[in-house]
Amino acid sequence: MQTVERITDALDERYKIRPLIEKNVTKKLVPRTLGWAACFGGLSLLVFLIQVFSGALLLMYYKPDPARAWDSVTFIKSNVPMGWLIQRVHAVGANVMIVLVMMHMARVAYFKIYRKPRELHWVSGVILLILTTQMAFTGYLLPWTQLSFWGAKVGTEIPGAVPVVGESLVEWLRRGNVISGETLGFFYAMHVWILPGMISAFMVMHFMMIRRTGISRPL
């Protein structure tokens, strides 16, 4: 404990971190009427971070190749120490994150928190919801199981209902006419780099806006 104190002292002397910690953590005042339901946004962020770290671990063994994807996931589950746990955490975490995001939105909608001046909080939040579902959708194909394959097939058929451009949209999503190795590569790139990058950008915007307007205080 004394070592922690001394490190904090040294950092405080140089960077004045004590007032920073007090203002943001230890002495931060939360509106008294704010209930537990106000935690869902923060919990969504927590689960997102769990997904990032468990995903980074899975990346060490996963191979985005139709011939080897399923084998590599099986290898993670049966040969890598604790691999079954990390893989399960990542798969279950996806569902948990969607549930938490939905609950966060339900609260914001019910208490009408989206009203002026917080309209753009809501808009960025809806974009984050869409990105989250796309993360789940692209990740679902990666283990290359029967469920993955047919899930991706049915899912990529949906934009086909769009008039005029529907069919080319489906082809663009699949990188061809059918779900193939090209689709897997595209979904993989989307899942591990492009979508997480977009989510991070919109999260930063979302949080900065909340900082500017302050949290909504219920009566």
Binding site: F53, Y61, N79, M82, I86
Partner: peptide, 13 residues
């Protein structure tokens, strides 16, 4: 930390 550190260990095969 335990499962994460274990995961970074050598796979069985």
């Amino acid at each position: 930390a335990y499962p994460v550190v274990a995961f970074l260990g050598r796979p069985a095969s």
